[in-house]
Amino acid sequence: MLSTLIDLAKIPSRLKSKGVLGMNQRNHAFIGRYNDRAKYPLVDDKLKTKIIAQRHGATTPEMIGVIRNQAEVKLIHDMVKDWPGFVIKPAQGSGGKGILVIVDHDQQRYKKPSGNETSRQEVERHVSNVLSGLFSLGGKTDVAIVENLILFDDCFDGFTYEGVPDVRIIVFKGYPVMAMMRCSTAASDGKANLHQGAVGVGLDIASGKAIRAVQFEKPLTHHPDTKVDLSTLVVPDWRRLLELACSAWEMTGLGYMGTDMVLDRTKGPMVLELNARPGLSIQIANGTGLIPRLRHIENLEVPIKYPTPEQRVEYCVQQFSTETKFNYM
């Protein structure tokens, strides 16, 4: 009893020496200091994010349409007539809430990634719930974005179960400091959000190779559903993905940000969404703390001409390369 207490008392100093970033410090020293509140709407509203991303030449999933009020709910069926697969999401949602993924349909029956079918009424009801703000921050009324289904790159086959894996990169002052891939599982129901049970795989900034994997914040080596060895995961086109993530800094001007990216089979890297308050689990997936890297970037001398995304990526690739930490027992 006493020894566990003493152990517990030692944890803060050990975490500190490992450079683990806590919630209070994140809010205080990074989000509060580097993120201008006035710019939050740019990232809190996925519609606005899409617009600024396209203005800066970044690819985003193709937009099929927007449903703005209850009267238009029934238009959804016509809207997706020419699109076999599509996704409905609340513009101001977060954490994977309210995202409905349809992989195939005939305008009568809609097929979900799990193979289950839903009816027209259920799709309409989902849109209506999105509009009334059920899934949005503070329950405000919202709009529903309908966008094209992303077909993920074949190289991810087996690493993800019934869903598109996305790559989360923490971008600090325009530099990519830490990355992970989030792979959906049966538990996370086709969405790649960690607290819903997706697997987080820490990625080496230098190479895009897997470092370590966790589910529900516990380490693991194989995907729980497909049993594929997660240590063999390598994200292709890694440089371009990093550069795209970094360019989000030019788009939004937010200093501390989480970028969610996907690799489409045909169109390559895309920006899925940007996040002004990215979570801290990425540290667990990488098995290391964020603070040393953040401080490193913070202490960089700022030249008169700010480095381009390519230069920033090059710098981080040199600085932050990491060995794999998979641990087979």
């Binding site: 517990l8 944890i11 803060p12 975490l15 490992k18 683990v20 806590g22 919630m23 209070n24 410090q25 205080h28 020293a29 966790v214 914040e217 516990k218 380490p219 540290q283 667990i284 098995g287 290391t288 703390g289």
Partner: peptide, 14 residues
């Protein structure tokens, strides 16, 4: 700006 008590458990694997 220190750690929250609940974070000690959360980050224990680290």
């Amino acid at each position: 700006t220190g750690y929250r008590l609940t974070e000690l458990r959360r980050f224990k694997p680290l």
